[in-house]
Each structure stands twice: as C-alpha cells, then as structure tokens.
Computed example of a mutant assay.
Amino acid sequence: MNTPRRTPIERIGTTVLRELVEQIVTGVHPSDSTMPTEAALSEEFGVSRTVIRESMKRLQEKGMVTVAQGRGTSVNPRTSWNMLDPLVIDALVANDDNLTVLDELSIVRAALEAEMAGAAAQRLDDDGLERLRAALQNMADNIDDQAEFRQADVRFHHVVMSLSGNTLAENIARVLIGHAVGSSRFMGHDPAHSFELTLAEHGRITEAIAESDAAASRTAMSEHILGSWSRRRDPSRGE
C-alpha cells in the first residue's frame, strides 16, 4: 500500500505566511486590529497551531505585527513594515490598484540612482567608461526586441550602480528594480517611440558620467527614471 506524499511542512508554512501577508496588505486585517487567535487561524488554513505560531514570528520579523504574550497579536501600521522584504513588496505591488506604491517606488529609485550616477561620474576610470558604453550599445543593438531591450536597460542601470561604489544603495535599488520589473502594472504600456526616448535618456546619462559631471549625471538619471515611469503609467488609475 502506497502512502500518499505529504506536502513538506516548510512549504505549507510559506504558503500560510504568504497568504497572511496578503491579508494584512489588502486590509483584511487592518492596522491596529487584533489578529484572529491561533485556534481560529489554524482552522481557517487547515494547519497546526505550530505552523501559525511560526508564521506569526515571521510576520513580526517583517514588522507587520506585534506579538504580546497574553494580549494577542496586533497589526502594525505600514510605517513599521519592512518594505524591502520580498513577500511584503510583492504583495504591495500586486495589490497597488491606484499605483501609489509604484509612484513612491519610482521616486525612491530616482533619488537613489541619481546619487549613484553622481558618484559614478566622480569615480569613473577607463574600464568603467568602457563598461558603461558597452551597456548603452547593448541597448541600441536590441532596440527592436522588446524583451531584450528591457533586459539591456536593467543591465545598464546595474553598471551605473556598480560604478558608484555604494554597495548599500546598490543593494536597495536592485531590490526595488527586481520586484518592480516583475509587475505588469510597473511595465505599463509603451507609447510610440518610447524605446528611442529611453535610449536617448541613457545616452545623456552616459555622456554626463563620461564628462565626470556629477550634477548633470544626477539630473539625467532622475529625469530618466521619473520620465520613463510617467510615460508608462496607466492614466486611468489616478494620480
């Protein structure tokens, strides 16, 4: 007699955790409310109390809840959440109906990457300039292939980040780009000649960095990120 295969407990816990994050993000359990008891959640998800207890610990690590012995588990306001946590940012972007999160993400990206572009301009050497121009050329070579052009676009930004020497800012920006690019809402729609405009903007960034002009590099990068998002943003979802 064959015993049916059981789903590993780790996978069950991950599924429960992802669902709980989604429920908090979408307001099923709003800020300052008290989460259902372990018994109630155990029944809702059809899992043991141990799985629920572990999920609550992980939610607390993400800043989403506070577990108080004897007083239950309360939901924290968004300002306490770890917005760079993969589960949190994925849920926020996936449920960003009015694009507020993506608007904010673009502003943060623009600020971070502008500073990195300025730093890259001040630190640039011949090898760095060669890498930057090769990344720009890769974009130009793939301008007729939507998927390849977008990948080349991301690689260009990664080169600028690397040239900045700011590893903390690079890590944060990579997280923001990585989770945003996976969202159809962030990719939006491509108006006429959008790739040509994007390539021209990257060209201005490249030349400003090549000329070691930190101020112009910051301006070019910020204008590109905010302008590109403005072009792609779905106007029907409000401002």
Results as ranks from 00 to 15, higher is better:
residue 21 V to M: 12
residue 94 A to Q: 14
residue 98 N to R: 15
residue 43 E to G: 01
residue 88 V to R: 05
residue 46 G to P: 07
residue 30 P to K: 09
residue 17 L to D: 01
residue 23 Q to F: 10
residue 30 P to V: 01
residue 32 D to K: 06
residue 42 S to W: 05
residue 113 E to A: 08
residue 91 A to E: 14
residue 99 L to V: 12
residue 115 E to L: 11
residue 117 A to Y: 02
residue 28 V to G: 04
residue 88 V to F: 03
residue 64 M to E: 06
residue 81 W to C: 02
residue 26 T to A: 01
residue 118 G to E: 06
residue 58 R to P: 00
residue 66 T to W: 01
residue 83 M to F: 13
residue 105 L to E: 09
residue 26 T to W: 00
residue 62 K to V: 07
residue 39 A to H: 12
residue 64 M to R: 04
residue 71 R to N: 02
residue 67 V to W: 07
residue 29 H to T: 04
residue 34 T to N: 05
residue 111 A to V: 09
residue 67 V to F: 04
residue 86 P to C: 02
residue 109 R to I: 05
residue 104 E to D: 13
residue 103 D to H: 15
residue 81 W to E: 06
residue 25 V to L: 04
residue 89 I to S: 12
residue 91 A to W: 07
residue 101 V to R: 05
residue 98 N to T: 15
residue 66 T to Q: 07
residue 74 S to G: 01
residue 46 G to C: 08
residue 24 I to R: 05
residue 54 E to I: 10
residue 27 G to W: 03
residue 37 T to G: 15
residue 87 L to K: 02
residue 45 F to I: 03
residue 27 G to L: 03
residue 41 L to K: 11
residue 93 V to I: 15
residue 71 R to G: 00
residue 67 V to I: 13
residue 118 G to T: 02
residue 59 L to V: 10
residue 35 M to S: 01
residue 38 E to C: 05
residue 69 Q to S: 12
residue 73 T to A: 10
residue 17 L to W: 00
residue 60 Q to P: 00
residue 41 L to G: 11
residue 76 N to P: 02
residue 64 M to W: 03
residue 26 T to K: 00
